[in-house]
Design a protein around this nucleic acid. Structure first.
Lengths: 152, 152
DNA sequence: GCATTATCAGTGTAGTTACACGTAATGGAG
DNA sequence: CTCCATTACGTGTAACTACACTGATAATGC
């Protein structure tokens, strides 16, 4: 951990750089469907979770709630999702609109092709392990404390 | 790869979610120094590379060149970096300003503490492997083709 | 019932990110 | 020396991201 190679070893920098590169890659793959990787994720999650309150969606996706509010606005303006008040008057529930279903159907094969290329690039065996690492990093970020250093 | 758990297996989504979580974690750790993780990276890279043209910095950090232009503007307005024309009149070279040195010096211990927590959380042995995975993902994103599928 | 607390959501503000496009300077080919 | 491809850079536009703050509704305690 010499000061000279600080960023080369920074977990945060490397994770974010990898995420940027993958984001661009998936964005280009999904371009024919007219959506980016973030929107794809949002549409897919909405389809999976059915009518779902925004906060629950945010928790599920690991994004800030207010970020989701704005990201949903873009999809809503394109009629890809609908947002309606829930039974609890505080909540607003997100649903996949017909146009959103169509776009998602067009996007899934494009996503699958790109995903397959990545899995092949990493190698099938290593890919599962890679996904596990990403899950672990996410979990470490979510639970900031982990106060017991586990004598590591 | 059932359609139901599409995002759960998406390499892009998981990488970006992990990056978001780590970004927030490092942001909070660096807050006392008055900078975020992206700015920390930028300052550290500038110190390492000395007076450096923007494009070279962009290549080095894996960010878009135009993104760097704007991110540098923020640091420049805070007098953390200086930007001067290079010998080649097309280039503009970035240098770490005195204030930037001070901020960076204050930030490094904060960074190191957070970095250590992450390394401990992942486990020393696994951490190196994790970093390798992130490097690989970055590389896969950078070279989109990798045309030879290696019979995978 | 009423006050307090907790939950859900939006806005103001600001930083990060990248594509499409345009501009200026360099370096060769002729 | 001139023309042209290449290189380096900025701007317009738009999306993604999150914190601090605010308002509205629900749930709980008395």
């Amino acid at each position: 951990m010499k000061a000279e190679h600080l960023i080369r070893n920074c977990t945060c920098f490397n994770a974010r750089r990898a995420a940027r590169a993958l984001g661009q890659l998936y964005d280009r793959a999904l371009a024919p469907a007219g959506i980016g990787n973030a929107q794809f994720t949002l549409l897919a999650a909405t389809r999976e979770l059915g009518p779902v309150p925004i906060s629950r969606l945010a928790t599920h996706l690991g994004t800030d709630r207010t970020t989701l509010t704005r990201n949903l606005r873009v999809l809503r303006e394109r009629s890809l999702v609908t947002i309606a008040p829930g039974r609890d008057a505080r909540t607003r529930e997100v649903s996949l609109a017909p146009d959103g279903e169509a776009v998602l159907e067009a996007a899934v094969p494009l996503w699958r092709a790109q995903q397959t290329r990545i899995v092949a690039g990493v190698g099938h065996a290593d890919w599962a392990a890679t996904l596990d690492r990403l899950h672990l990093l996410h979990r470490l970020g979510e639970s900031p404390a982990t106060t017991e250093d586990a004598t590591a």
